[in-house]
Simulated scan of single mutants.
Amino acid sequence: MKFKILVIILAVSFFIGCKNKISQNAISSDEEYEKTLIDRENKAAQNQAKSSGLFVKDISFQIKADKKDFEDGIQPWVNIEKSENELPNLINKDEIVIAEEKITVVIDYPLTNIYKFDLKSKKGFNRELLVQEITKEYQKLYQDEEKSATIKTVPMKERKMYNRNQTNGKYGIWGHDLADLALSSIQVYKENGNTILTLGIES
Rank of each mutant, 00 (worst) to 15 (best):
V154R: 02
L87F: 12
H176G: 04
T195G: 02
A26L: 11
I9C: 07
F3H: 11
D144I: 00
T104V: 10
S83L: 06
N79V: 02
I134S: 06
K152I: 00
N42C: 01
A182R: 12
N79H: 10
L111E: 03
F70Y: 15
D58E: 13
I63M: 10
I114H: 09
L181K: 14
F117C: 07
L10C: 10
K152N: 01
E86F: 15
L199R: 10
G73L: 06
N89F: 15
K19I: 01
A26K: 15
T153P: 00
L54W: 07
G200C: 07
K57T: 05
I59M: 09
S203K: 15
S185F: 05
Q132I: 09
N163V: 00
K140A: 08
K68M: 05
L181A: 09
I8A: 15
F117N: 03
V131M: 13
F125A: 12
Y115C: 03
V154C: 00
L178C: 05
E202M: 11
R159N: 00
T36I: 04
T198S: 12
Y138G: 07
K136G: 03
N79T: 01
I98P: 02
S29E: 13
D30K: 12
D94N: 15
V56E: 13
L119Y: 06
A11H: 06
Y162D: 07
I5D: 07
F125L: 06
E84I: 13
S60V: 08
A99R: 01
R40Q: 12
K123F: 10
Y138K: 06
Y138L: 07
S83E: 11
L129S: 10
S28T: 12
Y171V: 04
A11W: 07
A26Y: 09
T153G: 02
E101F: 02
C18N: 11
K35V: 02
I151L: 11
F125Q: 10
L181W: 08
H176D: 04
N192Q: 09
E95H: 06
E101T: 12
I201N: 13
L197W: 03
D108C: 01
K123M: 04
S121Y: 01
S121T: 02
T195K: 05
G175H: 10
V97E: 06
T104E: 15
E31C: 06
I196K: 04
I98V: 14
G175R: 11
S184N: 11
I8G: 06
T36Q: 14
G53Y: 09
P88H: 15
K68I: 04
F70M: 06
K140T: 08
N113F: 12
Q166I: 02
K93A: 14
L181S: 09
E86S: 15
V106R: 09
Q48D: 03
